[in-house]
Design a protein around this nucleic acid. Structure first.
Lengths: 337, 337
DNA sequence: GTTAGCACTCTTGGCGCTCGAGTGCTAAAC
DNA sequence: GTTTAGCACTCGAGCGCCAAGAGTGCTAAC
């Protein structure tokens, strides 16, 4: 198939590819002229584009889409690489945030592209443990650990008369009562006055918890771990500083990364590929995103995405994403189930 | 002074500056010819450089150094800006990591350059609170909060026979005993067998704590929060993608940022400026770093650095760094003292 | 010490040229 | 009817050349 050859060669060289090249490199047993005819047809149908007359052809988004959907071979990772990846992941399994951070690094090094991973949605995470740690009269840390392994602590102001003992009891009560509740439900329950047995200063304590929940929701509701941006600078399509700037600026600013990862997602577990305009963001029109979701006990937790130029080694990247999602899922499930 | 005019103009325009320009823009009451003489002299002495004959002059590192040391006026920030900065900082004071992260964002937005902040050295941080949170038999979270407000949690494997009650008692004992100890001392004490009253399973529990300490030391001993890298892309000296790549790659990889911040530092509290080669790193030869330390109760905690091209608005950046270090110091001290 | 004048240097940008890669079309060959 | 060879055509990349402009250094005069 000519389309496959064009995509393969363009992915490898980043140069528009001409009929002669294909005839030579991808011995299809036909002459350049035949290939020219075919290419003209493919262009007609929108699978290829010409940067200008008398340059070779370049795949269009439609071309990449067809390639990904019908021509992509199932690439298995090299067994050694697979094992190494898995081992490196497991090495940081002790703490969720570190694990995700590390996964970003591994994946960006292995793929050579930019990697984003969205963490668990904290507001939806369920509570495992809550405790007030007295600092000095009227001041305490409130420590919160969720069942998916994230810890947050926060400084809270309390009534000066609250004693250490009361704090301990309140902590106990909170942990007992809200274990397994989603943070947003905890917040709601406390905010609406269902205070239960928090002791003398229940209003103050409840307000502290509510504040923490709100802070968390506001601050890192949609936390996205990001890495390997410099990889993109090596790609010829980003030789232009302005393009890089537009892209990185978009990603650096808040929600864009999260939107890219989750906007398209069906969360049905398979790795999916979004190409160029499909991403719906102008700054990444020449990029593609290969993404997949990782889980904890069948429940979706977050998504992994590899963002590179549309001219991307889809087979390999897809295999990598698959491998890392599977790895994360297994680690999280094994550790936290 | 001619040197001042050259630096000022070059900072503003990024173009080599000629004698005529100076005579016109910085009315010193003399003709271009006079200025030419002076410039020739300054070049002789190494304060200025010529990219090529018949371009204007550009300050050398030595020139910037003189400018910073002797010609720099004390810039006060606009009062409104000062207040806004301070308020924005205080808004995230509830959690140390979030505070530093946020400071990076604020400072990079205000300065228009790249910002690095090194966090507290965890191995040297002192322990405020430790607790085992049972997950299921043989598995628990170990939560650690330091006195400078950082929380870490980690999954640990324990003997299956350890009961929840024993965990509670051990937590109590640990927190009591090690409160105020530096992490590395805790680690050392436990590793060398001073187990105290940790109950039946003291070895297992102690090993868990030691592992956590080690993990922490290994993983984020020298954590550096980084932001505003995209700002640099807007600077004309980084129009060349390869330069950007070299720089960002260096910074993305581990210890370099920390070295830059702390290599030069005398930690005597004043804001300092390192110019070009003084930084001792090839990738940042055309850059300067304005840095200052922030503290908690007179004890140095970490450092803030603004990295931009040597052609940088030193007065403003210095004022900003001063302001933010002071802000962080006050917030940390007020909250955690 | 300062300045005007002047010759000199070096970069930048525009222009035109050639070269080469690649195309599309047509007519012949299989 | 599909494939191929041949050929004219197009267009961008690269190169050399030239003119313009900015800036310098030097010298001589103020």
């Amino acid at each position: 198939m000519v389309l496959r050859a064009v995509v393969d060669d363009y992915v490898a060289t980043a140069e528009p590819v001409g009929s002669r090249t294909i005839a030579r490199k991808y011995g299809l047993g036909v002459s350049p002229a035949t290939i020219r005819n075919e290419m003209a047809e493919l262009e007609e149908e929108g699978y290829l584009e010409q940067p200008h007359t008398s340059a070779g052809r370049v795949p269009s988004s439609k071309g990449y889409r067809y390639y990904v959907d019908y021509l992509l071979s199932e690439e298995r990772l090299d067994e050694g690489e697979r094992v190494r990846l898995r081992a490196a992941l497991a090495q940081h399994a002790h703490e969720t945030a570190a694990l995700l951070q590390h996964a970003v690094r591994l994946l960006s090094a292995a793929s050579g592209y930019l990697v984003m991973i969205s963490g668990p949605d904290l507001a939806r995470s369920t509570c495992r443990f809550m405790q007030f740690v007295p600092l000095r009269p009227g001041r305490a840390f409130l420590v919160l650990v969720t069942e998916n392994g994230l810890a947050r602590n926060m400084l809270v102001e309390l009534d000066e008369r609250v004693t250490a003992d009361e704090l301990r009891q309140a902590s106990e009560a909170l942990s007992q009562r809200f274990r397994g509740w989603a943070l947003r439900d905890v917040e709601e329950a406390l905010a609406s006055g269902m205070l239960g047995d928090l002791g003398r200063y229940r209003e103050v304590l409840a307000r502290a918890v509510v504040t923490l929940c709100q802070q968390i929701e506001a601050a890192d509701r949609h936390q996205v771990y990001l890495g390997g941006a410099t990889n993109l600078l090596k790609q010829p399509e980003f030789r232009d500083v302005d393009k890089v700037w537009t892209l990185l600026n978009a990603l650096e600013e808040g929600e864009v990364g999260y939107e890219l990862l989750h906007g398209w997602s069906r969360d049905d577990g398979d790795v999916m590929v979004a190409i160029g305009e499909e991403l719906g963001l102008d700054a990444v029109r020449m990029c593609s995103l290969v993404s997949g979701g990782y889980r904890l006990c069948e429940r979706p937790v977050g998504r992994i995405g590899v963002l590179g130029p549309s001219r991307m080694d889809y087979a390999r990247v897809r295999a990598l994403v698959e491998e890392v999602t599977r790895g994360l899922t297994e680690i999280l499930t094994e550790r936290l189930a």
